[in-house]
Write a protein that binds this DNA or RNA. Sequence first.
DNA 1: TACCAGGCTTTGA
DNA 2: TCAAAGCATGGT
Length: 315
Amino acid sequence: MSRTSGALSAPGFHLGHTLASGQVFRWGRDRDGWWKGIAYGTALHLRQEGETLLYRASSDRVVTYTGGLAIEPFLRWYLRLDEPARVRAPKGDRHLREALRALNGFRFVRQEPFECILSYVLSVQAHMGLTKRRILFLSRRLGAPIDFEGERCWTFPAPDALASLTGEDLRAHRFGYRSEKVVTSAQIVADRLRALGRPPGLDAWREIGDHLHATPGSGVGLKVAKCIDLFALDRLGAFAVDTWVRKMAEDWYDVTGPDARICAWGEARYGPQAGYAGEHLFAWYREQHATALMDRVISFCASGEPSPELPFERP
DNA sequence: TACCAGGCTTTGA
DNA sequence: TCAAAGCATGGT
């Protein structure tokens, strides 16, 4: 475990679109133009120059649910550098065609499943900046510090650590009605992992995700479950329906009704890569209609401005 | 001030 | 089965 740096070839990949898309909560673009974040217990700095991805990392080896990986194979796996989105716009689907062009090079990253689950339970009916601050708060309080390049960040708390909290603890810190959901879902995950008795692989995480969705009170409803499918469980055919996708579906495709109906429509229309179709349409619709919001993916990337929320602190 | 945020859950018909 | 309302808090 030692600090390392290097460069990777990343043709067709767009780092900013990938990290600013809203799928991750612990990445931000710093004043110096580097993207800085934490994944799998490792502090990472990334910067794209043309088709080259420069990296600095707090460790040269990273442990994931697939086993240990050297830093470069890890980055290729985490960012799906070798798995470009293969979405085909149906004939006449002008909006998706435009969206694919606007958000070119976007990839779903492979997030840590537990962090992804808790992050999206926390994100319910909250702005993204606020969710980022709440995740940073939990990490500072219960995660392990990592000092890297003069900055301090924290690993995401273990399931047992979050399961030991109470709803009252979190309400005292103004987490609102998400408080009990966070604790409940962490307890469910901790219990399943204990029962499993071995490090969970992707199949075990999928079972845990499905179980949470099937458990009332976990905070994992349809939308959160689909986000977990996409961002952590390698189920790229999932179509997540949120307030923006709902508006987009009605406005652009004349599809209305309950979220489950819109979800089924998207998954049937776009097939095994429906997740990519949904993410592109979400970003492209929001880019044009959420003009009051500062965190629109495409214009933020083009601006070069630093992120308002960064996942670390400088002493 | 009023309305909304990348919703979930319970209730009542 | 399904629409509607309640839920806490912060942002705009």
